[in-house]
Design a binder for these strands. Structure first.
Length: 286
DNA sequence: CACCACCCCTGGACGC
DNA sequence: TGCGTCCAGGGGTGGT
């Protein structure tokens, strides 16, 4: 379940592919990739769209999305969904084509014989190819809200203004704020002591400041810890994260609250498992 | 327009 | 051991 911290760790773990040239891009499962023209129209995907023949320039991230750009300015956006991952195989180990992990949907071979795999068992993730980084920004990333890693109280307040839905619903909405998923939404709300079902527009300025600060802290801490490895998350080199050890509420329903020791509550909010403390996160502001 | 339910998918946990 | 059932949830879509 890669959220912002996990995608950031994948981005960092892929930095070594910069300046390498992709000699071959192979799509093993066509329906996980989409390709778009400069004007944003869908078109069929070619190996060239998947960066074949190009040299890697930068690795970008916005929210939970990763993008690889090339020196000739092509851009490939990677969305991880629930179970997506990248796997970087170095050139010092031989890797015959037959030796590909299950659920590998795309495969890039570099000029130094190393290769990169996109693996996604549940296929909620996918690839989106754009002819330029401008096209990626214009047609895809423009729909995302501000990046959660640096969210300001001002920007969060703007997103919450006039929003009558639960604050947790807003935090999960990538067009309002990009990068927060179910784990870090619950953790941020707990740290800021805001009840997840509170109507977003009802948050006081003080609470918005606390929440924006909590989101930044929780995400930055998780990046430093290498991301949360709950079920299957690994970075591109196969390293696990330890941010799950810092979780105060996620996955801890009925366990004692770390602040007041009363059992944590769980409910379903906007179709998501939600864990919080009824005492420390009051429904009405204190 | 704002918001929500539903759906896509598979691996793993759990009960019998 | 094996089988059935349920759950995890990001994001697109269609409905209210």
């Amino acid at each position: 379940m890669p959220e912002l911290p996990e995608v950031e760790r994948v981005r960092l773990s892929l930095k070594s592919i910069r300046r390498r040239t992709i000699v071959r891009a192979k799509l093993l499962r066509a329906d996980i990739a989409a390709s778009f023209s400069e004007s944003g129209r869908a078109r069929s995907t070619t190996p060239s769209h998947l960066l074949q023949g190009a040299t890697i320039s930068t690795l970008l991230r916005r929210g939970k999305q990763l993008a690889i750009t090339t020196t000739d300015n092509r851009a490939l956006c990677i969305q991880f969904g629930m179970s997506g991952r990248m796997l970087l195989q170095t050139s010092d180990i031989p890797h015959p084509t037959s030796d590909i992990p299950k659920h590998t949907h795309a495969l890039w071979t570099f000029d130094d014989n190393s290769r990169l795999l996109f693996i996604d068992p549940r296929r909620f993730g996918g690839l989106a190819a754009y002819p330029s980084s401008d096209a990626l920004l214009t047609h895809r990333w423009s729909t995302l809200g501000p990046d959660a890693l640096a969210i300001t109280a001002h920007d969060l307040a703007a997103a919450c203004k006039d929003a009558h839905r639960p604050i947790k619903s807003l935090l999960l909405d990538q067009s309002a704020l990009a990068g927060v998923g179910n784990i870090y939404a619950d953790e941020s709300l707990f740290l800021a002591r805001v009840h997840p079902a509170r109507s977003a527009h009802s948050l006081a300025p003080k609470e918005l400041t606390a929440l924006a600060s909590a989101i930044r802290f929780i995400l930055q801490q998780a990046v430093r810890a290498g991301g949360s490895t709950i079920r299957s998350y690994l970075d591109a080199t196969g390293s696990t994260g330890s941010a799950q050890n810092d979780h105060k509420v996620y996955g801890r329903a009925n366990e004692p609250c770390t602040i007041c020791r009363r059992p944590l509550s769980s409910s379903r909010l906007v179709q998501r498992a939600t864990v919080f403390c009824v005492t420390c996160q009051p429904r009405r502001p204190a």
